[in-house]
């Protein structure tokens, strides 16, 4: 069974017929060809597939495409090219192997959208749904400080 779905991805309209339980993650990576969004666990634990759904951070592996109908999705590819998080993550040690980085940047973007100058405890909490096995998180905190104009 498939159902018709229409939604916006990074500002462009997408429409098609999908099995209702098909994961948003698969539609993004497959039909939309947006491979910045990664699959790390497939069960909502690692945050590598994090995207914004109407400005709310979600794990796209847990979102059935039926729930996306009529809504707006932003992936890493849809962030403004000059989002300060990009340069900050690259410069401060916020990325190592890079597989968690797109999801981590989306979580950081969601945080900064809510809070212009987060302190460390806000940052820790906002990132606690995104696992990084390389950095020990320190470089990621530094990136968020830098991108929010608080120095490294």
């Amino acid at each position: 069974m498939t159902i018709p779905c229409r939604f916006i991805v990074n500002g462009s309209a997408v429409s098609g017929s999908f099995p209702p339980m098909r994961r948003l993650l698969d539609v993004l990576r497959g039909e939309c060809g947006l491979t910045a969004t990664k699959e790390g666990c497939g069960e909502g634990e690692c945050g590598s597939c994090a995207v914004l759904l109407d400005d709310t951070l979600v794990n796209s592996c847990l979102v059935p495409i039926a729930d996306v109908n009529g809504r707006e999705v932003t992936t890493l590819e849809g962030l403004p090219k000059d989002d300060p998080l990009f340069a900050a993550f690259a410069a401060t040690g916020g990325t190592q192997c890079g597989i968690c980085t797109p999801g981590m940047i989306m979580a950081a973007r969601a945080l900064l959208n809510d809070c212009l100058r987060p302190d460390l405890s806000q940052t820790r909490e906002a990132l606690s749904g995104n696992l990084c096995r390389c950095t020990g998180y320190g470089g990621i905190y530094a990136a968020i400080r830098t991108a929010s104009g608080q120095g490294e």
Binding site: K38, F86, A90, G93, T101
Partner: peptide, 16 residues
């Protein structure tokens, strides 16, 4: 870092 930009932009190509 050399591989920084491709990783933060999500353009680095992993096997999947």
């Amino acid at each position: 870092r050399k591989d920084g930009m491709e990783k933060v932009r999500g353009t680095a190509r992993y096997v999947a």
